[in-house]
């Protein structure tokens, strides 16, 4: 085993523990914090895969924005601290079976993709180059300009929708 493989295994163990604790922790805030640990582990995996852009995006979007949003939502909706409820109900066996089936299905699908068996060792260019290529592809008419602009429309729709739901029109009017 190389050093990289050992590091990969260690990070994977952390991610799995984080994920398990997320679903099994009775305290909602703790569950959110374990989720953050799992997400941070995923960021570390991205670094190992030489996808440094994805790694920082993972931290910037998931850990900084989404997880904080989750905690705020938890605080808004219910009494979160020190809550103890039963973590499993009657159909947990069924759920575990379904999860296992989905996992094995995805695994068998992936194992049939031939490219995944190769080791990507031919990343010769600096990864600066890849970010630049990504940036060019995003605004290139022949490539992904449509998804790029659609993404912005989607974000706009998300923002308007969120504000509309959080603030119904009758409250917003007035002199402001």
């Amino acid at each position: 085993m190389t050093v990289l493989q050992i590091i990969f295994l260690g990070i994977s163990v952390i991610i799995v523990i984080g994920a398990l604790m997320t679903v099994s922790s009775p305290n909602l805030v703790h569950a959110a914090l374990w989720l953050i640990l799992a997400l941070a582990g995923v960021a570390a995996i991205f670094v190992l895969l030489e996808a440094s852009f994805l790694a920082v995006v993972q931290v910037a979007v998931y850990i900084d924005a989404i997880s904080i949003l989750i905690v705020i939502a938890v605080m808004l909706t219910r009494r979160a601290m020190g809550e103890t409820e039963r973590q499993i109900n009657r159909s947990w066996l069924l759920a575990a079976f379904a999860a296992f089936m989905v996992f094995s299905g995805i695994l068998s699908l992936f194992s049939q993709v031939p490219q995944l068996a190769n080791t990507p060792s031919d990343l010769v260019e600096s990864s600066e180059f890849y970010i630049q290529e990504l940036g060019k592809a995003l605004v290139n008419v022949d490539q992904s300009i449509i998804p790029f602009e659609v993404a912005s429309v989607l974000l706009l729709a998300a923002m308007i929708g969120a504000i509309f739901i959080a603030r119904p029109p009758e409250r917003a009017g007035g002199d402001s």
Binding site: V61, A65, L69, L138, A162, A166
Partner: peptide, 25 residues
């Protein structure tokens, strides 16, 4: 608080899209 969080999230994702554009600028 939640609205601020949401708007922040959306601008964060926007910035993530824009950084490759800025690198290739």
């Amino acid at each position: 608080y939640y609205i601020f969080g949401l708007i922040f999230l959306i601008f964060d994702i926007e910035a993530v899209f824009l950084f490759p554009w800025a690198v290739a600028y």
